[in-house]
Design a protein around this nucleic acid. Structure first.
Lengths: 216, 216
DNA sequence: CCTCGCCATTTGGTATACCAAAAACATAGC
DNA sequence: GCTATGTTTTTGGTATACCAAATGGCGAGG
């Protein structure tokens, strides 16, 4: 039973489809439909749906088929507010508890981003960005914080990806990441806190701009 | 389908049993056993187990029956660290966004605690304490924050209940709550942040003491 | 007496059949 | 032509049967 359960596999496939936009927000995901569509029975599909619902990618409504979540700007802002608090906390804790190896890994991810920024590998750049922040959370030596942070990031994956398409933003991201890495290496909690906070604030503004643009 | 599903009902019953200590940490909760024990089939029981697992009250292990969680001191501390960050954030946001009615409700809960402190209604005192903190989170005008905070509190319900049995602690709790209420009414984010932080730190020390006492 | 391996039992995972409620549609009455 | 109502269909919820894997006991062999 070490193999991932069918429900997990399906959840993963569905998650990918949702994040990549193959399943548009608002699409309904009926148990029967998708169970057949993916060649499994309703039981694991049902479980997969519950998993994604808990993650916030699907919303369940009584008497209706589950629907791909379509978060409002306020919801995204609220979530980012929480992420900001958790990342600031992660940074502080990482300054105190991170091993040198962990900080090295963070720096490595940062340097990978610098390289990727030159190319047109948008997706890889973005995923490395996510990995960078995940690595900081992991270095907090607080497993639950890491887990929670991952959940929140996952939920915002798509909207962040869409809003991060502006290439002009990359320089700012890299500059801020540089400062965060420097802060971690110097174990300077104040610097990390400050830069992390500002970093997320900028992301929030970016997303606000994305929503504004989208609602034309 | 407005009625709560069987799975939810069972999850609630199990949750109660766990929090009240009727199901000792470490007890195994087999699907078949408990499905029969509670007079339902495996399907809703299975779902209930997943729900409680997501909440952290049960832990799932491949090839084994689920088991009632038995968090280590470090895990509890880690969780409290997160709760502290979220409650501080809640307090700040509440200062900015809470309606007068919400602050009134918070004060009312506080005053109810003052009354209950005189009696021996330990459980009610404790539940009002939880409600007090939940109310602040609700006043943050950030639904997701409220939800997350509730989840984290729920997970620590039992250990906090056990560690809060010391009556000598009530005065300190009430005093700190008084300051927090004052801070909210004055919309003084700094005061709220400070007192909330200190409040949770004290709770953490209490729990540390509880663990020390327990491990005799 | 100890150890290694096999088998039975128990576990969770999956498929499927059935049910009740609610939504959608069509039809009849106004 | 519109509304109200009854029927049909689709939905999720539940029960149950079956499967494969892992555990733990039991027995044979050392």
């Amino acid at each position: 039973m070490t193999a991932p359960t069918l429900a997990d596999q399906i959840a993963n496939r569905l998650r990918h489809a949702i994040l990549l936009g193959e399943l548009a927000p608002g699409s309904s995901v009926g148990e029967r439909d998708y169970a057949q569509k993916m060649g499994v029975s309703r039981t694991p599909m049902r479980e997969a749906i519950r998993i994604l619902a808990k993650e916030g990618l699907l919303v369940l409504r009584p008497s209706f088929s589950p629907v791909v979540a379509d978060p409002s700007l306020k919801q995204v802002e609220d979530e980012l507010t929480i992420i900001r608090a958790l990342e600031v906390l992660s940074g502080e804790l990482a300054c105190a508890h991170a091993t040198e190896a962990q900080i090295g890994a963070i720096r490595a991810l940062h340097e990978r981003m610098v390289v990727l920024a030159e190319t047109e590998e948008m997706l890889q750049f973005f995923e490395t960005d996510m990995a960078f922040h995940r690595a900081i959370a992991r270095a907090s030596d607080n497993a639950r914080l890491d887990e929670l942070h991952g959940q929140l990031l996952a939920r915002l994956w798509r909207v962040r990806f869409l809003s991060a398409r502006q290439a002009w933003d990359r320089d700012r991201v890299l500059k801020q990441h540089t400062l965060i890495v420097a802060g971690l290496e110097a174990r300077d909690a104040d610097l990390v806190r400050l830069e992390t906070d500002s970093h997320i604030q900028h992301i929030k503004r970016n997303i606000q701009g994305h929503f504004r643009r989208e609602s034309l």
